[in-house]
Design a protein around this nucleic acid. Structure first.
Lengths: 91, 91
DNA sequence: TTAGTATATGCAAATATAGCATACCCCTTT
DNA sequence: AAAGGGGTATGCTATATTTGCATATACTAA
């Protein structure tokens, strides 16, 4: 399912125009991203937790040449599914 | 930030009552979960991809006792942040 | 059309995971 | 509003799994 299909489905469920459904959806993702940018963890009960994980610098490798490369520290967004999700998918 | 705070903020941004904001939000998460339950991958451009990862059975270990344990196959929801997110958090 | 994402490659190092107790935070229910 | 119950973080060891580097291609989406 891609974003367009998701928006179409939400448009029906929420009784909104597709444009409004998309605006609504974007507002939500942006709100979450803004919180994360402020280094805040976003916990959503029954769904999961979004957090910014700091990754240490390390040694990588160019798969083409095999040559070693130093990789700097970085950050990435992590999503930890809630317990209820885990159960939902393991029945 | 927890769900209540998120809903409060969305209520303002979307000009909805808190009840409606929550209903809207829940509809979205449920739509995503339903797709995932149907073994569908949910791709959201500019945000990320949710997918169900199948994990094979394997031998684990009880960290308390050190004892070996057989672990059954399981599934978990994974979120892969989009490229733009990665850039957003590494400037 | 252009933008975005998946794939594929080798390999070192980071991270996840398993069970479980404790502490704590959240959340729902009186 | 207060409280009880549920969810989550932490810490423990050893192994399994993932990550992410460069880059081009294939494919899908906006």
């Amino acid at each position: 399912m891609n974003k367009k299909q998701l928006i179409t489905q939400l448009s029906g469920s929420l009784n909104l125009s597709k444009a409004d459904a998309e605006r609504t959806f974007d507002t939500i993702t942006n709100t979450i991203l803004d919180a994360l940018k402020g280094d805040d963890t976003v916990k959503i009960a029954g769904f999961g937790t979004y957090k910014v994980a700091k990754r240490k610098a390390r040694v990588g490798r160019n798969p083409r040449t095999g040559e070693q490369i130093q990789i700097g520290a970085s950050q990435k967004v992590k999503f930890l599914p809630a317990k209820s999700l885990k159960e939902m998918f393991n029945k």
